[in-house]
Design a protein around this nucleic acid. Structure first.
Lengths: 353, 353
DNA sequence: CCGTAGCATGCAAGCGCTTGCATAATACAC
DNA sequence: GTGTATTATGCAAGCGCTTGCATGCTACGG
């Protein structure tokens, strides 16, 4: 360390001990004054605080978290690919989480993983690197929930699972949104609707499929078994699926998409078939409010159930922090609201030829 | 804590002490065995390691970092907006960093901020929350570099600055890439080229402008002063700029874009003017390899200097970790390679009418 | 003027780990 | 069998903070 002396030239109090020394007080008093503990008279507190400020003192987070048993840090565990795929709403969730932790003065530890997520969660828990964790994309029957309960690490799930275990979550209102979208198309006279859903292993996909059928059932109808397509949430699959279904013997009159990415593919497929969206064929969609993919910007603009996945991210982090700090008791369940925004992509179904 | 006893039911060794007790060894020996210190016989080491594994023991990261003075965590400080903007290569950098820290077994602490970055850096440094930090988007004369040197916090900059201070960086080869792109257009006979550059406050923008002029100078030419446009890196500004310049009295024959986002806007503007890319007007671009925005996928495909900003992210983290661990000495400077990929967006300039 | 309540502050243990130094045990040369 | 290397392990002091408990002091009623 060639510059060791220069460090001492700044009369910065690097630690509590020297700060206490400078003030002629004990570490305990200084520590308590800085944390505004009751029993410390206001005058001392002010004296200590201003001395700390002048010295540029900040408590050592490592020592503090060891003594306190809390690190004021939350973790986010996610498969590395979610940052690599072009079409992902993950970044928006991350932005929401970032906003929340900034406002609550927490830190965010990113835990990307490849392969075994359980191992990552175990490591995070037993190494006490974080006070709690956010997990995403739960499966229908997700083993991580039981694991985290067993590890006694506070956690919040983005989405729901079917497990019996108690857990906190923030989820999109899939049930109502998809029922609403389906009902809208039915109202407009559509009966031959293709729902482009996500991959069946995720719980929200099942929920959406059920809502779709429920909307039909509410009018005494039953959609044909092939009405729902279970494919990934990308433009490419939206395109391929639409292309395939448009060459069905009986062409669908409407498409319901799970994401704006898929909807974009559907628009393209319709264009290639020379069909006009909102005239020849109707399209509706669920819109998570992903940056740069607004349903409002589609041409023609896309009727959609709008929600903010960014707000969901904020909510996730806020709930987790409340849980960690014991401000709220048991499992918190939060369903994010949505609204149906009517735009130009839906027309009355043409009478059957 | 209602479940306190159940914790003890698992005979997991929660800490070194109990693990040592179980093994009939001292904490020192167990600690050294786990870290494979020399002087610990192989047989003891194996015994300890397997016992630790069986007990599911993992060292407490908080205690470890306090004792060690290192947290095996790096920080990434960035303005919150960079996660909110739709058109950003930041996520790709993040993906690269994530990959690298996973492979080196480090953690990544995200420090989004709004407003005063210097305060964030100060906090990060004096609270010892991270061992080092990555900063991005340096200004021509960036004060953060001096600050971090003063704080003695290891850091790496994504990009370069003009400051005298020593610092490590990873940067795109802006100089050669833009000279190469400009030369290509000049080779094809273009003289009336509009370069759509970034905002002038960033150092890379200045470098790119200089390279553009240098390519002209190499043939004894000088571009007109309005040849370079300093605008943000978005589709919208690419579009607006191109629209504006296409109605110049003398229409440009080629556009050189700083990012694929801008190039996308230029394509759209040309389309609206009824001009064919690669026939009527040529377009070249620098392509950072941003997810989902490949120059190869443009129609017609876009000639570009290709680099991987994701690899740059990896490099950033690897260098920072080497710096932290003292594996490399002073400032490391790394310029990422690129290659010029010829595609269909460039044609010979039409002879002047 | 004494006793005691209450206020301001300090002592010291402890959070769980690392590590310099010491010590006990063994090996080997003579 | 003694002396010295060498090997295997342990002791205890920190890392910088928090906090339960103790202590000295002032103030006030009687």
């Amino acid at each position: 360390m060639p510059h060791d002396e220069s460090k001492r030239l700044h009369k910065n109090a690097a630690d509590l001990k020297t700060l206490a020394l400078q003030l002629g007080l004990s570490q305990s008093t200084v520590s308590r004054a800085l944390r505004a503990h009751p029993g410390i008279p206001e005058t001392t507190r002010l004296r200590v605080v201003s001395a700390a400020e002048a010295a540029g003192y900040r408590p050592n987070a490592r020592a503090r978290s060891l003594a306190l048993g809390r690190a004021e840090t939350i973790g986010l565990s996610f498969p590395l690919e979610r940052l690599q795929l072009p079409e992902t709403n993950f970044v928006d969730v991350l932005a929401g989480i970032s906003t929340a932790i900034t406002s609550r003065n927490y830190n965010l530890l990113l835990s990307p993983f490849q392969g075994d997520e359980a191992a990552v969660l175990r490591r995070l828990a037993s190494s006490k690197a974080v006070d709690g964790i956010i997990i995403t994309r739960p499966l229908v029957d997700d083993p991580r929930i039981a694991l985290l309960n067993e590890l006694r690490l506070p956690f919040v799930v983005h989405g729901r699972s079917e497990v019996e275990e108690p857990y906190s979550f923030v989820d999109t209102d899939n049930d109502n949104a998809f029922e609403r979208l389906t009902t809208l198309l039915l109202d407009y006279g559509h009966r031959h609707i293709v729902a482009i859903n996500g991959l069946a292993q995720f719980r929200y996909v099942a929920a959406r499929a059920a809502s779709f059928r429920r909307a039909f059932a509410a009018r005494g109808l039953t959609p044909p078994p092939d009405a729902i397509e279970f494919v990934s949430m990308t433009e490419a699959t939206g395109y391929e699926t639409a292309m395939r279904r448009l060459s069905d013997a009986k062409r669908p009159t409407a498409f319901l998409c799970g994401s704006v990415f898929q909807a974009r593919g559907v628009y393209r497929a319709l264009g290639e078939h020379g069909l006009k969206v909102g005239i020849d064929v109707s399209v509706v969609c669920h819109d998570d409010g992903v940056r740069g993919f607004s349903a409002a910007d589609f041409v023609p603009s896309l009727t959609a159930t709008a929600t903010s996945i960014r707000s969901a991210g904020e909510e996730l982090a806020l709930i987790l922090i409340d849980l960690i700090e014991g401000k709220v008791p048991g499992p918190i369940r939060k369903i994010m609201p949505f609204e149906l925004v009517l735009r130009d992509s839906v027309a009355l179904a043409r009478p059957e030829p």
